[in-house]
């Protein structure tokens, strides 16, 4: 089988790439509130990308109400300890809380050391909170590729506030911006002067900035430089995000922080921003879903994988253009869309 004139507009095999249906028992247990079934479903989503479309179809009617709160910051600033405090604070305000904590996978071995539970041991066994550690796997933007789907599973399980803690980030790991409704950026004293705060990237994505470890010297300097930078304006919303000083370990400022998160949550729901964000994410999901589906169909009907390998080998030897090869390959694909389909 070659790559000549491959047709990928055949709709007859739409679901051929989807993994076998889950055992009925798993869904029954999941809807009955069995935490083990929730945990198992999360593993499915993490480990079997092919199963995600079928799983998300099951979840579809149960989504759209939870507020997803990203918590991000450089390594070691205390995001885990802070997430623990926020989760408890939200649970005390009658919310059911999901916590997703992402830690980095080794690019060398694929293994991951996940230590978030060391800081999050205050709510183990607390039915109001469901916590899950995720290894970042192929994700390079602060989250694992499955994080949005994991959040869907946890929301459908009945959680209405979902904290998503990223890996320790540098300046430009922005996955969280496209996954969460609100972004909480956590910083600490002695974190750099105003020049650091003026750089583009994560600092612009924050809806709320928290200076943690405010019991340590230097907190005022950080607050001052952040206030200065935001007085110049904010690219995201035009106005400066709230700026709070807390100490997660000393539990200082936590009540105010949780109250602020609640206010921001209410305001994005009331302003319609929450639905707008959800709509934006769905657009991206549909786009990437189409790309995946077409790519899978293409692979099924050709031995493209081998042809691409072969081409790359020749390009290395000949110094030719990869894009010329892409154009040639694409010219052999007939992609026709039924004009009535978009009517």
């Amino acid at each position: 089988m070659g790559t000549d004139n491959v047709r990928i507009d055949d709709l007859s095999n739409l679901s051929a790439g989807v993994a076998p249906a889950l055992a009925e028992g798993l869904w029954t247990s999941f809807w009955a509130g069995d935490r083990r079934a929730c945990a198992r479903l999360i593993s499915k989503v993490e480990n079997e990308p092919n199963a995600i479309p079928a799983i998300r179809e099951h979840l579809a009617g149960k989504l759209g109400h939870a507020i997803r709160i990203g918590v991000t910051g450089p390594p070691g600033v205390g995001t885990s300890t802070l997430c623990s405090a926020i989760a408890l604070g939200l649970a005390d305000r009658q919310h059911r809380v999901g916590v997703i904590a992402v830690d980095p996978s080794s690019p060398f071995t694929g293994g991951a050391f996940m230590g978030d539970r060391v800081r999050m041991d205050k709510f183990v066994g607390d039915d109001r909170i469901f916590m899950r550690s995720l290894a970042s796997r192929e994700g390079r933007g602060g989250l694992s590729p499955s994080t949005p789907s994991v959040a869907d599973v946890i929301e459908a399980f009945g959680m209405d506030r979902i904290l998503i803690e990223t890996v320790g980030v540098g300046q430009a790991e922005l996955d969280v911006m496209n996954t969460a409704d609100l972004v909480v950026l956590v910083l600490q004293p002695i974190t750099g002067d105003a020049i650091q705060s003026m750089k583009a990237g994560i600092i612009e994505a924050a809806d709320l900035i928290v200076v943690n470890k405010s019991d340590l010297p230097g907190a005022d300097t950080v607050l001052q430089s952040l206030r200065f930078v935001y007085s110049l304006g904010s690219a995201k919303s035009g106005k400066a995000p709230p700026l709070l000083a807390v100490s997660a370990q000393q539990t200082e400022g936590i009540e105010e922080l949780v109250d602020t998160i609640e206010q921001l949550s209410t305001s994005i729901v009331q302003s319609g921003r929450h639905q707008e964000l959800r709509q934006m994410r769905l657009v991206e999901e549909i786009k990437s879903g189409i790309v995946d589906e077409l790519w899978q169909r293409y692979l099924r009907q050709s031995d493209a994988e081998r042809v691409i390998e072969e081409a790359a080998k020749q390009l290395v030897a000949s110094g030719g253009s990869a894009y010329k090869f892409v154009r040639e390959m694409c010219s052999k694909i007939q992609l026709t869309v039924d004009p009535k389909a978009n009517a």
């Binding site: 293994g111 991951a112 183990v124 066994g125 550690s133």
Partner: peptide, 29 residues
């Protein structure tokens, strides 16, 4: 060692109870 062998390790740390360990293992699958 397990991480270097490619496993995903959730490290709970010190002073755990049997209950907290099993509850964590359950959520982590």
């Amino acid at each position: 060692t397990l991480v270097e062998a490619g496993m995903e390790v959730v490290y709970l740390g010190l002073r755990q109870t049997p209950e907290s360990i099993v509850a964590a293992a359950l959520e982590e699958d």
